[in-house]
Amino acid sequence: MKYNLKVWRQKNSKSEGKLVDYTIDSINPDMSFLEMLDVLNDNLVRKGEDPIAFDHDCREGICGMCSLHISGRAHGPQHAATTCQLYMRSFKDGGTIYIEPWRAKSFPVIKDLVTDRSAFDRIIAAGGFVSVNTGQAQDANNLPIEQAHAEKAMDAAACIGCGACVAACPNSAAMLFVSAKISQLALLPQGGPERNIRAINMVNQMDAEGFGNCTNIGACEAECPKEIKLTNIARMNREYLLASLINE
């Protein structure tokens, strides 16, 4: 199969970028999208050109390292999949594919398609944890947790921190990411003691990082490779509002 690619090229964070056209031929439909880029890069290196930088690591949809805004969508056209889980059979032979980095002020471009997502780490550092030092834990079964709650917590905890929610959101909001962590810990008794302060600190950090605001458009949910639900955002709003009301 053959494709016309329009790829965002940008030397570094300071320089201007632009879309550059590439054509790529003899692509196998069972190739993953990143393998297609591997082939393209291989061609570029052999021609003595600079290969395209893109983030990737596990290539099985769990590390959250791969990104890419493909033909207008975060992680491409396939539902509930990361870019590394996207296969070329999803694209029409001879078609044009746009490949751009995540776009958000809080995710500055490092090179080509690679962005800096450390803002997410700082949000977690602000409160996305249970403060329990190693060795302080009681026996794991001392605190039974309703199965349904554990399952819901797991649904939220499945977030891989890839940033597709920010990339897909017309407002570049990070609410789905932040709410997934707040939800997970709010649903479990272990998260209880820090529940209020966590909601406040994480939301404040999110705002400080310059992400946009949620207007409940729902693009994040639709594009999330791990199908994190909007209900988490509602839960976060609830946690935050209540915490703001009672926090002294």
Binding site: G72, R103, P170
Partner: peptide, 14 residues
């Protein structure tokens, strides 16, 4: 929050 816009976007899909 998004100083550089996408060159191509397909928001209708989501």
């Amino acid at each position: 929050a998004r100083p550089v816009k996408y060159a191509y976007s397909n928001p209708g899909a989501n």
